[in-house]
Design a binder for these strands. Structure first.
Length: 214
DNA sequence: TTATAGATTGCCT
DNA sequence: GGCAATCTATAAT
């Protein structure tokens, strides 16, 4: 049972760069409920953001930015609102959005979406056969950072450094006015360092949040 | 140059 | 619940 209303593209506005120009914790809290879109070969893919994690700068041992600026992570140190895409475990891409002003590292990791549009394309990209439209089946599409990247065909280097705040971009975050009823914060998933901090943010009760239970 | 851990997922028992 | 798949970055020889 979820409360997200249908997504209407015409009533949605582009989330501007200033939104990302602050502490990733604030961005995490406020980006929940907004809509990630991808325009691809004439089709629109869209999913509501239901789970994110904040990664900070030098003081955050779990963050890629903790090692300092490298060829891999330089986007984190650049201007806000850009895509940082990395490859993990030899299998999966993950999508982050840079936060804080140029010169300061920080980002959010998009961990789960509720599919809204382009669902046929998402099934195809994930290599799954659509049988119905049950929540349990739809969860396979975008509940998890590697899954949603595959569903949206997000890869590196093609999408790395892409500007999400540009009106020209094929990858954007839109605000359609939806606001979550309640947001919960928990420890981040899959990390061993700095694991005690509550930097994972989810829409309470949303079934598309990753993991076994919503 | 070699080893190992990693912001994950899916298949196996 | 356990573990293999399989690439990258970084640490250790």
């Amino acid at each position: 049972m979820h409360l997200a209303p249908d997504f209407e593209l015409t009533r949605a506005t582009l989330v501007a760069r200033d939104f990302y120009n602050r502490d990733p914790r604030g961005v995490s809290r406020d980006i929940l409920g907004k809509v990630l879109i991808r325009r691809r070969s004439g089709k629109l893919l869209a999913g509501r953001i239901v789970e994110v994690e904040a990664y900070l700068g030098a003081g955050d041992a779990a963050a890629h930015a903790a090692a300092g600026r490298t060829a891999r992570n330089f986007v984190l140190f650049g201007p806000p609102g850009h895509a940082y895409v990395y490859f993990i475990y030899g299998n999966h891409y993950c999508l982050n959005i840079s936060c804080l002003p140029d010169g300061e590292a920080g980002c959010i990791l998009i961990r789960a979406l509720e599919p809204l549009a382009g669902i046929e394309q998402m099934y195809r990209a994930r290599g799954l056969q659509p049988r119905g439209r049950s929540t349990s089946e739809m969860r396979q599409l975008t509940s998890g950072p590697g899954r949603l990247a595959e569903a949206f065909a997000i890869t590196r280097p093609r999408d790395n450094t892409k500007d999400l705040a540009s009106p020209e971009s094929d990858l954007q975050v839109l605000d359609d006015g939806f606001r979550p009823l309640r947001v919960a914060h928990t420890p981040r998933i899959g990390i061993s360092k700095s694991a005690e901090q509550l930097l994972r943010y989810v829409i309470s009760g949303n079934p598309f949040v990753s993991g076994k239970r919503a």
